[in-house]
């Protein structure tokens, strides 16, 4: 029987592929920052319906969602240098077009692409916050920023957590396309390795295992986060002795405190 599938190779070449894991993680990390920050900004612009900017945001989201990520990667990879050459030509500047590492284009393309999707997730999460919750904060005397920071953000965050987790997972796998910008990350290394020994199937199985494990770790983290932000199903009961201690403490405090003015005056 010929050696059609080299199972051993699938595992022995994983360490070689993992050498480029930092590049993949670097892509994910920076693209994530861009996509999240820009996503929040776009979502806020659209929720607040800022004139002009809101229209631009709608067009941007439509463009980013309506074109394939691979097209966007090539478009940034070729487009930004062309743009810079024009700038150099007309303004007499001397930007070094070839000095920009490919990873920058990949980060920009992935970040912009995901920001469009994330903005919609974040927007719907913000809109899902009950008006009564916001009014409660206002009635307490909170400023608009405090209402956003203390009420809208945490409650919308809870809603957005799972879909944003989806988006991050999508982003991790999206980095496998960064080779089109000349970035040598894990998948690119795999292609190079397979080019030498023609073991393409084995290398893609290896890559599949690695991406899956990364996703499993991420799923675990998201699950932990979810548990942290969700209101527990069961009411946390107060122990009898804790309650007793609270009661005692309250009695000593109220004994030391002057009675409320209204009661003292006998206003009823």
């Amino acid at each position: 029987m010929p050696n059609l599938f080299d199972l051993k190779l699938v595992f022995t070449q994983i360490p070689k592929l993992l050498e480029e894991l930092p590049v993949t993680l670097e892509l994910v990390f920076f693209a994530l920052i861009i996509s999240f920050l820009l996503g929040v900004v776009i979502a806020l612009i659209r929720v607040a319906n800022v004139p002009v900017l809101s229209k631009i945001a709608v067009a941007f989201v439509s463009l980013m969602r309506g074109t394939p990520i691979i097209v966007q990667l090539y478009a940034t990879y070729f487009g930004i240098p062309i743009f810079l050459r024009y700038v150099n030509y007309y303004r007499g500047t001397e930007y070094n077009v070839n000095g920009i590492p490919g990873i920058v284009f990949a980060i920009i393309a992935l970040g912009l692409n995901h920001s469009a999707f994330d903005s919609e997730t974040i927007r719907s999460a913000i809109l899902s916050v009950d008006k009564g919750q916001i009014e409660a904060g206002k009635a307490l005397g909170m400023s608009n920023f405090q209402v956003f920071r203390r009420i809208i953000f945490p409650q919308a965050g809870e809603v957005a957590l799972l879909p944003l987790g989806n988006s991050i997972i999508g982003l991790i796998k999206g980095t496998s396309l960064a080779f089109s910008c000349g970035v040598v990350e894990m998948t690119a290394v795999g292609k190079i390795l397979a080019g030498r020994n023609y073991r393409y199937f084995e290398v893609y199985v290896s890559l599949g295992i690695i991406y899956w494990v990364i996703t499993l770790v991420l799923e675990f983290i998201i699950k932990r986060l979810e548990k942290k932000v969700r209101v527990p199903k069961e009411a946390p009961e107060l122990k009898a002795e804790e309650l007793e201690a609270l009661r005692k403490n309250l009695q000593t405090v109220s004994a030391a405190r002057p009675v409320k003015e209204g009661v003292a005056n006998g206003v009823c």
Partner: peptide, 20 residues
């Protein structure tokens, strides 16, 4: 407006306790 709101407090029909 913030200063005004510090003089009053509101109890709502739907309670509006912060749910988280």
């Amino acid at each position: 407006i913030l200063s005004l709101r510090q003089h009053t407090e509101m109890v709502f029909q739907q309670f509006n306790l912060l749910k988280n």
